[in-house]
């Protein structure tokens, strides 16, 4: 009697559980990610930063190209950060509002970062997965091509592009896109080589699935974990890279700017006007930290075995 009533309860519970949606590996990973405090905080900060760079310009009366003539003569005194005159981050050495310029620079830098990562994920994943999956001679040719590309002196390419076509944001995207996917392709190829011998790939072959469909349906989703982690670490790398090019004076052209260009400018005036260095640098540092924490959290979440 005791047991039968219990059995009924269990049976009723089982009835109510029918049609339960299983939790996918992605959902599992998301739950693990949420337990990683630094990563969640970083995600939040990055979200705020993106919103700020998208809409922050409406909070200030100034424009990023506009020169504040009233303060131009005496930047060291009148150009200090202040709430009253609307120059929240102060003025740059030629009298433009640093707050607006930082926001403008954030857009360029974040765009470069995401663009580089996106190109890397898109081209790198497909290229690497195809090379790894087909293997043999095709793999050799594809990987040798990649090695030739990565042996190419990249700075030289950027300088030539800038010299021939003039300074243009688009060219930076092209240049960064051209190199960012190389190491991604290598990583994905390595992963694919190990996945290729897995039984579920053999099962797909046995079913009669076409090779390209196998790559898209079975290989890509399974390398995506590694790819995402690597991509989050690639974003700050790309931002740094753009900063480096801008610092050398090869990046975006005036009046547009980026974090690297602002820092370069600020570094020249850091004795007289330290705020011109501090604000853009703070943005860059915070972003880099956040992306690294985010990558860390994602790695822990996506391959819990490697912890």
């Amino acid at each position: 009697m005791l047991f039968s009533s219990k059995d009924k309860k269990v049976a009723a519970l089982a009835e109510s559980l029918e049609g339960v949606q299983g939790r996918s590996l992605w959902q599992d990973a998301w739950r693990r990610f949420l337990t990683h405090k630094a990563a969640v905080a970083s995600l939040f900060v990055l979200g705020c930063l993106m919103l700020f760079s998208a809409f922050g310009q409406h909070l200030s009366p100034w424009d990023f190209e506009q020169i504040d003539w009233s303060a131009l003569a005496n930047i060291e005194e009148k150009g200090r950060p202040s709430i009253e005159n609307g120059h929240y981050f102060g003025l740059d050495p030629v009298g433009r509002d640093l707050y607006q310029r930082t926001i403008q620079g954030s857009r360029i830098s974040l765009m470069v970062g995401f663009m580089g990562a996106f190109v890397a994920v898109f081209i790198g994943t497909i290229y690497g997965a195809i090379a790894g999956y087909i293997g043999g001679r095709v793999d050799s040719i594809m990987m040798r091509t990649l090695e030739v590309l990565s042996a190419f002196p990249f700075m030289f390419l950027v300088i030539v592009l800038m010299a021939v076509f003039g300074r243009n944001v688009l060219l930076i995207f092209v240049a960064i896109g051209a190199v960012s996917w190389l190491s991604m392709a290598r990583i994905v190829r390595g992963q694919t080589l190990s996945l290729k011998r897995k039984e579920y790939i053999e099962a797909a072959v046995a079913i009669g699935v076409k090779p390209f469909t196998i790559v898209i349906r079975h290989i890509v989703p399974n390398v995506l974990g590694v790819v995402i982690v690597y991509a989050t670490l690639l974003v700050p790398e790309m931002i740094l890279f753009e900063s480096f090019i801008s610092f050398l004076g090869l990046g975006v052209s005036e009046p547009h700017t980026s974090w690297g260009a602002l820092i370069s400018e600020g570094a020249g005036n850091m004795r007289t006007a330290p705020w011109t260095l501090i604000y853009p640098m703070a943005f860059l540092v915070v972003t880099l930290f956040c992306f690294n924490f985010l990558g860390d959290g994602l790695r822990d979440a996506l391959d819990p075995k490697d912890r």
Partner: peptide
């Protein structure tokens, strides 16, 4: 190991039909 870890059972069994 012979089942794709990121697909649901329904998708796995349906794959031959889809193909």
């Amino acid at each position: 190991a012979s089942l794709t870890p990121r697909s649901t059972v329904g998708d796995i069994i349906a794959e031959p039909l889809k193909t």
